[in-house]
Design a protein around this nucleic acid. Structure first.
Lengths: 328, 328
DNA sequence: CAACCGACGGCAAGGGGTTGCCATGTTGTT
DNA sequence: AACAACATGGCAACCCCTTGCCGTCGGTTG
C-alpha cells in the first residue's frame, strides 16, 4: 500500500538508515559518492519521505490551516488563492476549514487541528478576543480582517477606505448616509462603522446605522426594506457586496431606481459586483496580496515575540461603477 | 509547546498508556470505571491525540485532498462546501489544492501529498488518463466532472442536461446552435459537445462548435466575436457560466441584444448567473451534493475492487433566466 | 613515529500512539 | 468444588524518520 521506506532504500544502497536520512536533509554530512548512490537508489525505488514520521519528531508539519467564516462568500476566493500560492512556494500545505459563521464550529475545528498544523490563519474570525489569545498561546496565529493587540494581522485599510467612500459620496452631493451593518460579532462591522462615522464627520455629512444583518444576498431584501423605512438617506453603504447585491435586487423589485433615487456602495469587490446591474461601486483591494501576506507572516512567526506582532494594513481601492451617482 | 501526551494522561490516571489509548479508540475494551477516570483526567489535562503519531502506525490519516483545476471559478464554492461538510461529519480534514489549470502543478502536488492523505478528490482534472490510473493505483481516487473506467466518479448528468438545453432552445424556435467549447484537455468539454450533438440530432436542430476557449470571463469577448463571425446561429451555448457572462458583456458592448438577437446558455449556475443582466439561463445542479457524494465515495473506497468503482450521475437542473428567448 | 584531527557511517534512542499477546482477577458452568 | 471462559489491564514491539554520540579510518602535524 504505502511506498518504500527509508529502510528499503538503506538496504538497497547498503548503508544505514541514518545515512539515507542525512543524504536528503544534510547533504554536506555524507560524502558525495555515498549521497549520489543513495539518491539514485531512492529515485529508482520511488521513495518519498513520510511527512507524518517527519512531523512527529521535528514538530514541524509544513502545514498551515486557513479558517474562513463562510466559504460561500466569493470574497474569500482571492484570499484563498493568494494564501495557497504563498504556501506552495515554501512547500507548505494549505488546509482549508469552513467555520460556517459559527463560533462553536470554528473553535472545535481549531482545537482539533491544533496538534497537526504549524499555524492558523483566521479570516474574519467570529471568536471572542479571549479565545483568539488562547489559540495564539498554543500556535502561531495571523488574523485576517481583524485586529487584536498581541496577534499578527493583515487587513485592508478600512479607515482610509471609508474616507474614500464618504468623499466619493459627498462629492456627488450626498448628505445623509446609511450603513447597513454586518453581524454583531464581526470585528469588521464595528470598525467600518467607526471609520464611516469619523470620515462622515470630517466630510460634514451625516451617517446612521441600521442592522445588524447577516451578510448574504438573501438578507438584502430585509436590509433594503429597513433602509427605505428609515428614510432620509440618499446613499446606502452595505456591510459587504453580497448584502449590497441583495439590496440592489430588492430596490429594483420595489421600483426604487439606483442610482437616481438612492446610491449603493459595498465592500470587497467580489466578482459579481462587476456583473450585476447597475454595477456595484465597492471598496476593493488586492485580496490575493492579503492572503499572501498572511501566510508570509505565519511562516516567519516563530521568530517574533508576542508583543511585537506586526499589523499589516494593505491599501484599498474604491471601484466606481453604476450604483453610485449624483443626488438629484 | 505541544500539549500533554498519552504518557502524561496514563501517569495521572495511574494506568498504562495502552489503557488510555483503548479508552479512546475501543471503548468496550476497558471497564466503564477506568474509562471514565481516564477520560476525566484527559479532559482535565486538555489532552488531544496527535494525529501524526496515529497516522504513522495506522496508515489512516483522516484527511482527504481535494484538487481543483482553478480555484477562482466560483462554481467550486458549492462543491468545496459540500465536500467539507461531508468530511467534517466523519471527522475528516479536507485539504484544498489548487492546480491553477496546470497539469504539471496538479501532478506534483498530488505526488507530494500522496503519502499524507487517505485519498484524492480530483475536480475537472486536466491530467491525462494514464496519470489518473497511476494515482488510483496508489490511493483511492474519486473524479468529479470526469469519468474514466476503473475510477469512481461523480458528475452531473450532462447527457440529460444537454437534452434539456436543446429542448428548451428548440421549443423557442432556435434551429442553429453554436457551442463555445472549453479547453482541449477538459473532459467535460468533449462530453458536452458529444451530448449536444446527440440531443440536437434528436431534436432536429443543428449544432456547430467553435473554440476551444479558456473558460474565464475575459475570454468571453473573443468567444463572442468568434461566434458572431461564424454567423447563422441564434443561440450560443457556452462551456461554462464564466465564459457565458463574458460573452454577454461583449454582446452588450457590440449592441447585440440578448435574447432578442441571440440567446445564451451557460453551465454551472454560479452565483453571478443570477445577478448579471439579463439573467443567464444555465444548466445547474446541486453542486453541494456532488461534493458530498464525492467525499462519501472516497471514505468508503477501501472496500471496493478497481473493477466496480461506481459512477454516480446526479440530476441537473436547467435554470431559465432572461438570456434565452424566442426567435423573432 | 606518536598524538591529533576531521570526515564519514553506524548505532540506538526517541517522538506519540496502537495493538498482539500475556497475566491476572471474575464470573459462570457442571 | 474444580475448571472453563471472560473481562481487564499491562508489556513491549512497531510505525518511519531524525539526530546525538561514538567508532573507524586516512591523513596532518610536530
Amino acid at each position: 500500500m504505502s511506498g518504500p521506506t527509508i529502510y528499503d532504500v538503506a538496504a538497497a544502497a547498503e548503508v544505514a538508515t541514518s545515512t539515507v536520512s542525512r543524504a536528503f536533509s544534510q547533504p554536506g554530512r555524507v560524502s558525495a559518492a555515498t549521497r549520489d548512490r543513495v539518491l539514485a537508489v531512492a529515485a529508482e525505488l520511488g521513495y518519498r519521505p513520510n511527512p507524518h514520521a517527519r512531523a512527529l519528531l521535528s514538530g514541524k508539519h509544513h502545514t498551515v490551516a486557513m479558517v474562513v467564516s463562510d466559504i460561500t462568500n466569493p470574497h474569500y476566493f482571492e484570499l484563498i488563492r493568494g494564501a495557497e500560492m504563498r504556501a506552495r512556494v515554501s512547500e507548505y500545505t494549505l488546509l482549508l476549514v469552513n467555520a460556517e459563521e459559527s463560533p462553536r464550529v470554528e473553535w472545535e475545528q481549531i482545537q482539533r487541528l491544533a496538534p497537526a498544523v504549524d499555524g492558523f490563519m483566521l479570516s474574519a474570525s467570529r471568536l471572542p478576543d479571549e479565545n483568539l489569545l488562547q489559540i495564539a498561546a498554543q500556535r502561531p496565529v495571523v488574523l485576517v480582517s481583524r485586529e487584536l493587540p498581541g496577534i499578527a494581522s493583515v487587513v485592508l485599510d478600512h479607515v482610509e477606505g471609508c474616507r474614500q467612500i464618504v468623499s466619493h459620496l459627498a462629492s456627488l452631493g450626498h448628505r445623509d448616509l446609511l450603513y447597513l451593518a454586518g453581524p454583531r460579532n464581526s470585528w469588521m462591522a464595528g470598525t467600518r462603522w467607526a471609520a464611516l462615522q469619523t470620515a462622515a464627520e470630517q466630510a460634514g455629512v451625516s451617517v446612521r446605522r441600521i442592522g445588524p444583518f447577516t451578510p448574504k444576498v438573501n438578507q438584502g431584501g430585509a436590509a433594503a426594506d429597513a433602509a427605505l423605512n428609515a428614510g432620509g438617506a440618499t446613499a446606502l453603504v452595505a456591510h459587504n457586496d453580497l448584502l449590497a447585491i441583495g439590496v440592489l435586487q430588492r430596490l429594483a423589485t420595489r421600483g426604487v431606481r439606483v442610482p437616481d433615487d438612492v446610491s449603493v456602495v459595498g465592500f470587497d469587490d467580489i466578482f459579481a459586483a462587476d456583473v450585476c446591474t447597475p454595477g456595484l461601486t465597492t471598496l476593493g483591494g488586492a485580496h490575493v496580496d492579503v492572503g499572501r501576506a498572511a501566510v508570509e507572516l505565519l511562516l516567519t512567526a516563530g521568530s517574533r515575540a508576542p508583543e511585537d506582532q506586526p499589523r499589516v494594513a494593505l491599501p484599498t481601492e474604491l471601484v466606481l461603477r453604476g450604483s453610485t451617482g449624483a443626488t438629484t
